[in-house]
């Protein structure tokens, strides 16, 4: 079994199983609340749902196509390609396989 990492830690060609998302609630617990522009971007429930509707359901297998050093991550999921901004990608937990 692979380690639990976030999407941004994977390299092109890596395959992984989606585990889940860290939502706002968890994050605020960990990081507290600062001036909003210094906070990380929020992943509300709406966004988590959207990602699931695009095929990123816990348990589904994804493949990383591209991982820009400071930019978005491109993955292949459900037979389509998805570009995901770095901030969101950093809060999608996966297990490398």
């Amino acid at each position: 079994m692979g380690k639990k990492v976030t999407l941004i830690h994977l390299n092109p060609g890596d395959k992984a199983k989606v585990i889940g998302f860290s939502t706002d609630h968890e994050r605020f617990k960990n990081h507290g609340v600062g001036p909003w522009h210094k906070r990380k971007h929020g992943m509300g429930m709406g966004l988590a749902r959207r990602l699931q509707e695009m095929g990123l359901i816990p348990g589904s297998i994804i493949e990383v196509i591209r991982n820009m050093p400071t930019g978005p991550v491109e993955i292949s999921v459900m037979g389509t390609r998805l570009a995901i901004g770095r901030n969101i990608a950093s809060r999608i937990y996966v297990e490398k396989i």
């Binding site: 971007h41 929020g42 966004l47 695009m54 978005p72 390609r81 570009a83 995901i84 770095r86 969101i88």
Partner: peptide, 12 residues
């Protein structure tokens, strides 16, 4: 402008 920004989720 108040509010927090969203990130990119786009089908390629």
């Amino acid at each position: 402008i108040k509010g927090s920004p969203t990130g990119l989720v786009m089908e390629m």
